[in-house]
Structure formats: C-alpha cells, structure tokens
C-alpha cells in the first residue's frame, strides 16, 4: 500500500515534470534548430521476401542492397532549452537491389520521414543525444527487365544516437547513427502477376551542421 502510494506519487510528479518540460509556457524561449546532413546508408539485404497477389505463398532469396550515399535535413525544438525535444527528420538514399545471379539489379530509392523524440545532455559545448520514433518510408522501385515501376509507403521506426558540438554559439557540427526498420510492400512490382513484401533494415551514418535559433 505504502509502496503503491510512493510509486503513484512519483509517477504523478514525473508526469507533471514532463508536462512542464514539454508544454508549459516557459519564461525562457524554446530552442529551435534546423540541420542539414550528409552520409551513407548501409542497408541490410531485403529479408523475408514473400510474394503477394498471385505470387502469395512463394518465397524468394534475400535481395542484397548496395551501400549508397544519403542526405537529408531536420527541424526540431527543445522546449525551455531542456532535456527533451522533438524533431522532424527527412533523409533520402538509393540502396539499389543488386543482381541476383543472372537476374539484373533493380533501382531502389528510399525516403525516410521520421518524427523523433530526442533526449539530450544539454551541455554548453557537447551534446550527446539519443532518440527515436515512427517513420514513413516512401520507397520507389524502378522498372527493370523483371519488374514494373512501383512506389509504396510503409510505416517503420527509427532509433538514433549522436553527438553535437558547438563550433559557434549558434552553429553546431553533429554526427549521428540512425537505424531504420520497416516492411516494404511492393504490390505491383511484377505487374499483373503480383508483387512482393520484404523486411527493410538500414544503418545510416551522418555528419551535419545545425543552426540553433
């Protein structure tokens, strides 16, 4: 009973503190930032490749993906210069599908639109941070000798870790690792025959510059 009351009081205090950090009007201005980033996308093979449409029930080997450049941008805010922030992160990469023996490769592009909650150490010069949240992945499969052009939008998730260092009072350099997990559903990849579903997982490394207003 005492323990339950203790946990409830702590939980209430925590929720109240969270509300104050994120929502309450603060005498101190929120810290908004924009950022540009450039890096590389190291995608795992497309796994669990399963046919859809008339191909349902069929499996295919993993589709190996190429390492590709990646670029993107962010906009975010830390209310009250505090610990928690939210950001919108958009990045684009082209992890083309490699040839599968004698089957030629296929162009693939992926745009990752993530809404992240970010937790940082608000140091004056160094700010390590972690974050994560849901993501929309817009993937476009190119036309090839075996596939039709197809675009799909799927829901996934991002997890990220990074560190930011201020090079001027308002400009910071950062480096970041981001992990993405989703399931692609290219329902029209093979035209009227059907398509395929596959698990997409990617590791991205970025360096970038951010400006803090």
């Amino acid at each position: 009973m005492v323990w339950t009351r203790f946990v409830c009081s702590r939980l209430s205090a925590g929720l109240l503190g969270c509300w104050f950090l994120l929502c309450a009007p603060s005498p101190i201005q929120a810290e908004w930032y924009v950022a540009g980033q450039l890096g590389a996308n190291f995608a795992d093979p497309l796994r669990n490749v399963r046919g859809s449409g008339t191909l349902a029930g069929l499996d295919a080997p993993n589709f190996n993906l190429k390492t590709s450049p990646a670029f993107g941008g962010k906009v975010g805010v830390f209310p009250g210069h505090g610990l928690f922030g939210i950001e919108l992160d958009v990045s684009h990469s082209t992890p083309h599908i490699k040839n599968l023996d004698d089957v030629p490769g296929i162009h693939l592009s992926v745009t990752n639109i993530g809404a992240h909650v970010v937790l940082r150490y608000p140091g004056v010069t160094w700010q390590p941070y972690i974050g994560g949240g849901p993501a929309l992945l817009v993937a476009h499969l190119g036309r090839s000798s075996t596939t039709e052009s197809d675009t799909q939008v799927s829901v996934g998730g991002n997890v990220l870790v990074g560190i930011r260092a201020f090079v001027t009072p308002k400009v910071a350099l950062f480096t970041e690792y981001k992990y993405t997990d989703s399931t692609f559903r290219f329902g029209g990849a093979f035209g009227p025959v059907g398509g395929f579903d596959a698990t997409y997982r990617a590791h991205q490394l970025f360096v970038g510059l951010s400006y803090h207003f």
């Binding site: 210069h81 004056v124 560190i163 009072p169 400009v171 910071a172 350099l173 803090h212």
Partner: peptide, 17 residues
C-alpha cells in the same frame, strides 16, 4: 572527428539556461 575535437564554442541557449 578532427573538427569535433577542436570544437570549443559554447551553446548560446545553454549559456542562457
């Protein structure tokens, strides 16, 4: 990494905080 190592500026916002 070299640039990060040379970073010595202080955040305007954290200074304000």
């Amino acid at each position: 990494a070299l640039l990060l190592l040379t970073a010595c500026a202080q955040s305007f916002h954290q200074g304000e905080r």
